[in-house]
Design a protein around this nucleic acid. Structure first.
Lengths: 249, 249
DNA sequence: AATTCGTTTCCCACTATATGGGAAGAACTT
DNA sequence: AAGTTCTTCCCATATAGTGGGAAACGAATT
């Protein structure tokens, strides 16, 4: 795989800017690149209208071009935009954080989250990527992949994240079958101790899984025994609603 | 302003990909760049996880990284996501297309649109940029700028788009005062003959205007005399609602 | 199976192009 | 007004990007 230095660096800077806006020397420190190089790259990015200055000053931030590209990236419709009301509704009903992830290679990428009011809550995972077998979002995606694809997923080293992580291949395959029927998957402290979560798949127009909606909370309170079934039902039906919306848009 | 060739070209390709996914030679034709160059650039972009292959094949599309950056571009909250339900609600009430734009320099950039069911409708402007004085979205933004900024905006050549376009500076200043009071602005065929539209401003947490919500339709039916006031009221109150949501998020 | 067409991928010599140190100039701070 | 911390500019250097062309690959056709 080929690299192009300036492009690599450009996106390194964009990534930094996504975290937090800043000036040239600030970004130079954060990224470890020489100031003059940062100055040139930022200037080029500004030229392309990907970033812009805050109040015409010396600080840069991501520009509208990013939003525009994002809004066109899924057949002109923005996944995040469609997802958000559904996520808000889930948070209102379940009082735990809700997230959105999409599949990317053999990993899930978290692209959005809506938080609950409770001061004790799971941190925002937006931007992180995780292997599919350690999170329910990943497992529900896998469950709807063709057998061959699943096979090649499993033909690699599967990392263990906690004592609960399932890394046994036969076990995973069996689990996936159940998930495909259920349309949801619980993971109890399989990715990180103290976190439980549940996910339900999202399908694109063509019928392929594209991502997942999930709800997660601290394991001491989520899910309470009495709520387990209710949570699953709510999540699944919300995800289904969202898919319908995705279809005729 | 400095340019960096590879970055320029990278975003040229991304822009093409945003329009439509495609393979190397396809993009080479569309962009006018040599195939080997396109291959290298795409490979670098893939490496940076900005684009990815469709079904592991030879076609590329924008990847999740774009979405992720977009979702973090406005203080971790996605403008499009918050806006969408409000836009949908307006469409449901007014039966005309609704759009979202943000300010960028001396121009407005259209970043989102929700369409009505009516077969006769305004085309999707998403992605285009227009000078502020020819569209109501731009005018409502200008109206909330500091005087000095407005002055330097006006100290440039103002293009006329239709016979109705207002390019007289004194006239514009007077108009802006009215708009600031009203919180909305109608433009009747000032940008394009056959299109009427109305916009209301959106404010960021710090109180600055960041963009606008607008509704537009074919001039033969929109706005009907009886609806003019109602439309304005609905739009303004929806925009205000959305601003509140933007604030405590 | 064999041929063709349209891909992508690889290679490599070339020099255009990005690089980064340092100086000069602008902005804030004290 | 002097000091500090920025951004911007310049320029010699060689690295890193470039693009032509060949090879490899895949799909489609006969």
């Amino acid at each position: 795989m080929v690299k192009v230095q300036s492009i690599d660096r450009a996106f390194l800077l964009l990534q930094e800017l996504a975290k937090k806006s800043g000036g040239i020397s600030d970004l130079s420190r954060r990224s470890g690149l020489p100031t003059s190089t940062v100055a040139r790259l930022l200037s080029a990015l500004e030229e392309s209208e990907v970033i812009e200055r805050i109040d015409d000053g010396y600080e840069y931030k991501l520009g509208p071009r990013i939003l525009q590209m994002a809004s066109q990236s899924n057949k002109g419709e923005n996944l995040l935009a469609i997802a958000r009301p559904h996520m808000v509704s889930l948070v209102d009903q379940l009082f735990e954080n809700t997230g959105l992830s999409i599949s990317s290679g053999y990993e899930v990428q978290y692209v959005g989250q809506v938080n609950c009011a409770n001061p004790v809550q799971i941190r925002d995972w937006t931007g992180t990527r995780l292997p599919m077998h350690v999170v329910p979002s990943g497992l529900v995606i896998l469950a709807h992949w063709p057998k061959k694809a699943v096979q090649s997923f499993l033909d690699r080293k599967l990392d263990r994240y906690t004592p609960n992580t399932v890394v046994n291949k036969a076990e995973i395959i069996k689990r996936l079958e159940k998930i495909k029927e259920d349309r949801f998957c619980w993971c109890l402290e399989e990715f990180s101790e103290g976190i439980n979560s549940i996910a339900s798949p999202l399908f694109a127009e063509n019928g392929n899984v594209m991502g997942a909606l999930h709800v997660h909370g601290p394991s001491y309170r989520f899910p309470s025994d009495s709520m387990k079934k209710i949570v699953a039902n709510l999540l699944v039906s919300q995800a289904e609603k969202m898919c319908k919306e995705l279809k005729h848009k």
